[in-house]
Design a protein around this nucleic acid. Structure first.
Lengths: 189, 189
DNA sequence: AACGGGCGTTCGTCAAATCGAACGAGATGA
DNA sequence: TCATCTCGTTCGATTTGACGAACGCCCGTT
């Protein structure tokens, strides 16, 4: 959620879309959702049509019924696979010499991000089954090389390369060089 | 926001506390906040007392007026300097060989975490003035060596070392070797 | 065709969230 | 001491969100 002054009004239409999206994902009808959430069908109908200004209680009930964190209903959708090669990206050079910071990924609000250090050796590839829906993995290679990303389109990464990809779909990590190291930020919204 | 089935009702009291906390942080009165947000004083008074069930529009207006992401009003609060040397930490070896993932930091709910890649050369040290209150920086060294941390107690770091420290106090980053690289996760709750 | 069931939408009613104004308490200064 | 300002709370009026019932629609079944 960017803190520009320009976010004047609540993202009603986005919430509308989010509700419908999550409901579709759950594969249930509006009527069924009404029963589970304890809300009236009419209320849901209005919300999905973008009309309405739900109360916190209503939104919360929806989050519980849909089994998704509250935040996912109000926050913008998430990106797919993103690759930033070493040397690429919006580098913010320090006024002070010899220092470069590159923003790789800005966290959406409500996201939880767990930071891991990884070390791998060539050989078997690590194939991860999908995690929780909405999970995004951020991978930053330190040393060595690796082949990583979604199983159907892995990317070869060299030191300094950054890759992010959906964690809720099958993905792999294969070290190509000995002592391949890096950092993974596991983001589960 | 945990997805346990046990979250029956919206966290009214937490939101009440959050609003008052953020308002205090901003150093403005309830009356002033009312003017800025366009809400009635009475409404705010009720909300801060835990009474009420704010609409999305109301909550959003509050977020904008307070200059905080929406999530911070609804999510639980949060957690200083921690150092994990390369090879230390709770390593979760993969069932599959040659792969090690070490959890360095678990994200508190509601935190925003921005991921940066850094590269620095020896010489001048980069001295950062404090960021927003509540900011925590996570530093993971990839190559080279660095002296980093709070200005009064910096730590020498080697590849693989992890350090986290408050970002809302003066801190430094000094490369000790040429081409010192790493990752920084800037966590501003 | 006619029926039954589930779907999502629309409309009138009611409860409740929001508002505006008035109030008492405390601080400040003439 | 009294006047004046600002703070936060409380109370009645009004707007509005949520509800429940009825509706039209579509798809299976008999």
């Amino acid at each position: 959620m960017e803190r520009t002054v320009a976010d004047g009004k609540p993202p009603f239409e986005r919430i509308a879309a989010a509700i419908r999206r999550e409901r579709d994902r759950a594969g249930i009808s509006l009527t069924e959702l009404a029963k589970r959430s304890g809300l009236a069908k009419s209320t849901l109908s209005q919300l999905e049509s973008g009309t309405g200004n739900p109360s916190l209680e209503t939104l919360w009930a929806l989050g519980v019924a849909l089994g998704v964190p509250f935040s996912r209903l109000v926050d913008p959708p998430r990106p797919a696979v993103q690759l930033i090669r070493a040397g690429e990206g919006p580098a913010a050079h320090s006024g002070q010499a010899h220092y470069t910071a590159t923003l790789l990924a800005a966290s959406p609000p409500g996201a939880r991000r767990d930071l891991y250090r990884i070390e791998a050796q060539p050989g078997e590839s690590r194939r991860s089954e999908p995690h929780m829906p909405g999970t995004v993995e951020h991978l930053l290679i330190s040393t060595g090389r690796a082949l990583a990303g979604p199983v159907d389109e892995p990317v070869e990464l060299a030191p300094g390369d950054y890759l992010s990809y959906p964690g809720d779909a099958p993905h792999v990590f294969t070290a190509l060089d000995p002592d391949t190291t890096g950092a993974i930020v596991m983001e589960h919204v």
